[in-house]
C-alpha cells in the first residue's frame, strides 16, 4: 500500500494526537481522509457531511494543486503525495 503525508490544520489537530503531519496508507484523497479520521467519529463529522461528501468548508490540495469543490476525492493519488487539508483561520 502506498503512503501519503497529510498536513493537518491546527483546529483539527487534537483529533490526531496533536500532530501537524501524519502518514497514512491510501490510494485516494478520500481514503486518506478516512484513514486519518478512522479513530475519531467527531473528526469524521468535521470532514464529511451526512451523505459522505467532503464538507465544503474543508479544502484539500494534493501537492499544492486543489481538489475541486464538490469532488468526492476518489481520484487516485501518487505514492508519496502531500495532501494539505486547509480550513479557514479567523484570527488577526
Amino acid at each position: 500500500m502506498q503512503q501519503l503525508t497529510v498536513i493537518v490544520p491546527p483546529s483539527i489537530r487534537p483529533y490526531v494526537g496533536g500532530q501537524s503531519r501524519i502518514t497514512v496508507e491510501a490510494q485516494t484523497v478520500r481514503e486518506a481522509l478516512g484513514a486519518m479520521s478512522a479513530k475519531s467519529a467527531q473528526l469524521k463529522e468535521h470532514l464529511f457531511d451526512s451523505k459522505g461528501e467532503i464538507n465544503r468548508f474543508v479544502r484539500i490540495f494534493v501537492n499544492g494543486r486543489p481538489v475541486p469543490l464538490g469532488s468526492r476525492g476518489d481520484e487516485a493519488v501518487e505514492n508519496g503525495a502531500e495532501i494539505a487539508v486547509v480550513l479557514a483561520l479567523a484570527g488577526g
Partner: peptide
C-alpha cells in the same frame, strides 16, 4: 471558502 467554518472549529 464557499461555506463558513462551523463555530466549533
Amino acid at each position: 471558502f464557499p461555506e463558513k467554518l462551523p463555530a466549533s472549529l
